[in-house]
Amino acid sequence: MLGSEPLSLESGGSDASVRHYWRAAYAERSVLVMDADPALFDAAPFLARQAELAAAGIRVPAVLAQDAARGLVLLEDLGTAELTPLLTSPERAREWYLKAIDLLVQMQSRLDGAHLPAFDAAFQRREMEIGREWYIGVHLGHQLDERQLALWERSIALIVARNTAQPILFMHRDFHSRNLMVVDGELAVLDFQDAVLGPVSYDLVSLLRDAYIDWSEDFVLDLAIRYWERARAAGVPVHADFAEFYAAFEWQGLQRHLKVLGLFARLKHRDGKDRYLADIPRVFGYVKAVCRRYSELTPLGRLLLDLHGERETVGYTF
């Protein structure tokens, strides 16, 4: 695509999708080649979201060339400074998270998601069914009996009803520390091709209740307040009352984490990617904590603990 052979070509890694990346070095710069079988990955949403984000002033990798028919996209190389390894302490992490919150508010206030797929009730339900199929069914080896399945269905209906009552807007859908790169001291956004029109709290959940790194409840609460204040000031349609917003944040997090459990199990058992197994206890911990806090979710929490062979004698509800 650049008309000349690179001096070197090395793997730039892969992600949880079917894409693979190659770093091509030239005398004056390096570039990234995003490579995916076009039968398995449609590059059109990636290219469309990249253009929209760039036009809104959000730092994303520039598209240098593309050959969609061959599944190739040539991208600006933003380097290797992923945010996650820089979150070495709560003090340092807070500085970076505040930058990420500012970036999120910019995305939410500048981008119109009306043309994007709707992250609606059916979409959210399908995602949680990944958790039932792959995490409960395959990873834990349990097929729910009639009573358990009815309990699961009631719980999923409650979660969907709460989440679809939220204000909706542009939603990145995977806004977390592994998809944020540090470039010249600022943050750039990756992996935006799955953006949808969805609940206002979702991307903040992805950021603060990250599947790959966790923080104390006080730390998360403080940053959620900072986001809420900045979002309101920017005209983002968050809830008028912070307590309502934080409850919405928790219920949306439960939906996301039930899906993530299924995705991590599927990556292991179907795709042979074992590295995600280490993060399952963290994600399940998020699920347990939310189920403990809300009385409507107590039956779901007990079911999940039973499936793990665990018992819990003390719970708190709000």
Rank of each mutant, 00 (worst) to 15 (best):
V18F: 11
W96F: 11
V31A: 03
L86Q: 12
P85C: 06
W96G: 12
A43R: 11
S89T: 09
L104E: 00
W96R: 02
S17N: 14
G79W: 04
L104W: 02
L72R: 08
R92V: 15
V63K: 00
A51I: 11
D37E: 01
A44D: 13
V18S: 07
P90T: 15
A44K: 15
P45L: 07
L40T: 15
T88Q: 01
V73Q: 00
L86E: 14
A36C: 10
I58L: 05
P90F: 06
A27H: 07
A93S: 12
A100N: 05
R23S: 11
A27K: 03
L47P: 15
L83A: 02
E28I: 14
L83W: 00
P38G: 01
R23D: 14
V63T: 06
A62V: 06
A55G: 14
V105A: 10
H20C: 10
F41Q: 02
A62R: 05
R92F: 03
A36T: 12
P38L: 02
A81I: 06
E95M: 05
V33S: 00
Q66H: 04
P61N: 01
F41Y: 02
L86P: 13
D37M: 02
K99F: 04
P85I: 10
A100G: 11
V33L: 07
L87Y: 00
K99A: 04
L86V: 09
P90E: 12
E91A: 15
A27G: 11
V73C: 02
M34P: 09
E52K: 10
E76L: 10
M34Y: 05
V18H: 04
L74I: 06
A100H: 03
S17E: 14
L47V: 15
D77G: 10
V60H: 04
R59N: 05
A65E: 14
A55R: 13
T88P: 06
A43H: 15
L75T: 15
A55C: 12
R49M: 15
L87E: 00
E91F: 05
Q66V: 08
R92W: 03
G71S: 13
E28P: 06
V73R: 01
Y97P: 08
L86Y: 12
V31D: 03
A44H: 14
E82N: 08
L104R: 00
D37L: 04
D102K: 00
T88E: 02
Y26W: 01
W22P: 09
P38W: 00
D67G: 05
I101V: 05
T84V: 15
D102Q: 02
E82A: 08
R19H: 11
L47G: 14
L75N: 12
T88V: 12
I101W: 01
L74K: 01
E52P: 12
L98E: 13
E28Q: 09
L72P: 09
G57S: 08
G71K: 07
A69C: 07
A54V: 08
T80K: 07
E28F: 06
L86W: 10
L75M: 14
